[in-house]
Design a protein around this nucleic acid. Structure first.
Lengths: 166, 166
DNA sequence: GCATATTGGACTAAAATGGTCCTATATTGA
DNA sequence: TCAATATAGGACCATTTTAGTCCAATATGC
């Protein structure tokens, strides 16, 4: 199934952490509190800062903080910031780049799916990620099989018990 | 943004092709008609066959055909067959594998998103991919920015004009 | 038997991913 | 002004994944 990269997953954890801390957070604090290795945290904070989701203050007593309220940051924003604006298929742009029309009849469908997925991502804000127990905008009936159910053999959790990255 | 692999993209094209052809199709025909290199087509057909979406007939006059009506094959089926049952995050199972609870508050949200995405994928059938001009189950208003709009610098289309894979 | 096909797997090259580290620069406070 | 604290911006490398090819074995129809 579709998946996000581990770094995006880490990035989300970092953003949730910044949501909890109203104050300016240096990278070292974020690393200590999340258990993610410092270099990785630094890299992600830089990326997030460049994307505009967070802002930085240099120098002593500096650090990072969110630029917007958590409810104004969507999952789509996070994905865009950390994975770039890649679409679900490479040629799902405005079909200008794909000329093999006879074979590309599937392309239109992927674009529709892409849009639907994007809508789902726009509906979830960082505020809701911060507190997932609260009522959620995405309440769908159980689907019989969610993909997530099937996996059972992961050797290591994404955000594991071990401190930092192995 | 989220993306599917190029092979999954090819696989969809192949399935759409099989939808058009009611008859038994050998891999060589599929390759010739789709413009995808034969070895790649063979590999994908094998995978699709193992997943049960298509069935094979060996020997002379053999080939592949769909096992179900196109409307009974969803985009989620295709993704599952070609990309495996990976969830959006590695630890989005039944939170049994992720013990870092204090940092993993984001995990629940990704699970919800995963479910929403899966629902979107289940709503699109191969029949609709085959004929995307017809009314589509996923009609959402334009989102202002769909991710797909932003990309403009792809050097090569996914299913390109050149015959086969370079 | 022979031509036609699928089956299963090995194999390689290229690209993406995950992770680390180094130097430069900005800010604060003594 | 100096020292300590931070971010900025890359370069860099190891590993994994992806994409693509190829081969020997097997099954079927004529």
């Amino acid at each position: 199934m579709l998946r996000i990269s581990k770094l995006t997953d880490y990035g989300t954890v970092i953003l949730v952490h910044l949501t909890r801390q109203a104050r300016l957070c240096p990278a070292s604090d974020v690393a200590a509190d999340t258990g993610i290795a410092l270099p990785t945290v630094q890299k992600l904070l830089k990326t997030l800062s460049k994307s505009g989701l967070i802002e930085s203050v240099r120098g002593a007593e500096g650090g990072y903080r969110l630029t917007k309220a958590p409810r104004d940051i969507s999952a789509a924003d996070i994905l865009d910031a950390l994975e770039g604006p890649l679409a679900i298929t490479e040629c799902s742009g405005d079909d200008s780049s794909c000329e093999h029309e006879s074979n590309c009849s599937a392309g239109g469908a992927w674009q529709q799916i892409n849009t639907a997925i994007r809508k789902a991502l726009l509906d979830v804000s960082l505020a809701e990620m911060h507190n997932p127990s609260k009522e959620f905008p995405l309440v769908y009936t159980v689907l019989g099989e969610t993909g997530a159910q099937r996996q059972s053999d992961f050797s290591e959790p994404t955000r594991g018990t071990s401190k930092g990255n192995p």
